[in-house]
């Protein structure tokens, strides 16, 4: 479904030109979980942005193919096409600053539906929040939530529009061990329930080990 062939950005670093990330090649099949595993600075975030079409690679390519749709060459598409692809097929969980601070929790969850111009049914959003155990936070603003609660809301938002892939960038990086384990469980479970693929960027070996595939970055 998703195919990454040596996609990379080139950054000038003094006199030398650095390729970020180094050579990577992988496939992500529907429903699978893959971990981008590497130390800080290895290019995990850059690669996720390339996959999402937020960045355009200087070399290599990113290809996406949903069932029943024409293959889509993310790395060569126009900005408008990439926005539509991202909106429709991807969900995002970031390490921090996930939620829009001026929208309530439930509004944050409804946002992807509205961006996709789909009916915004509060009940759908509340059900998602309930499944993640944060339904009682629905009317609060993100600033009043704990880090763990914020990540759970972010997971609900990443899945609400039934994307094909959820991209998670160090989703537990800001949490203590207990909360991290809990959020990881929830993320895996939610992705499995929704039947969508998961691409997690992490430096943690423990999380990488839980993935179906590990893509090491150096």
């Amino acid at each position: 479904m998703l195919r990454v062939l040596g996609a990379a950005k080139r950054f000038e670093d003094g006199d030398t030109v650095r390729r970020v990330p180094g050579a990577v090649e992988f496939d992500l099949a529907p429903g699978r979980v893959a971990a981008l595993w590497g130390p800080s600075g290895s290019g995990k975030s850059t690669l996720l942005n390339l996959v999402a079409g937020v960045l355009v690679p200087d070399e290599g390519e990113v290809r996406f193919e949903a069932s029943g749709e024409d293959p889509f060459l993310v790395s060569a598409a126009s900005e408008r096409q990439r926005v539509r692809y991202r909106r429709r097929h991807l969900g995002f969980v970031f390490q921090f600053f996930n939620l829009v601070p001026t929208l309530t929790v439930v509004e944050n969850v409804l946002l992807p539906l509205e961006l996709n111009r789909r009916p915004t049914d509060r009940q759908v959003a509340l059900a998602r929040l309930d499944a993640l155990g944060v339904a009682e936070c629905a009317e609060r603003f993100p600033a009043t939530l704990s880090g763990g609660e914020q990540q759970r809301v972010a997971i609900a938002r990443a899945l609400v529009h039934e994307p094909a892939i959820v991209l998670a960038d160090e989703p537990t990086g800001n949490l203590d061990a207990a909360n991290a384990a809990r959020v990881t469980d929830l993320l895996w479970q939610a992705a499995a329930n929704a039947g969508c693929a998961l691409l997690v960027a992490t430096h943690s070996q423990r999380i990488a080990e839980r993935a179906d595939d590990v893509i090491p970055l150096a």
Binding site: V54, E79, R86, R87, F92, F97, N98, V100, P112, R157
Partner: peptide, 16 residues
């Protein structure tokens, strides 16, 4: 800025 980057990642177009 950060918020807008997040919104762009969620699929809001710069035009919107």
């Amino acid at each position: 800025r950060t918020e807008h980057q997040r919104l762009l990642a969620l699929g809001a177009s710069p035009g919107i």
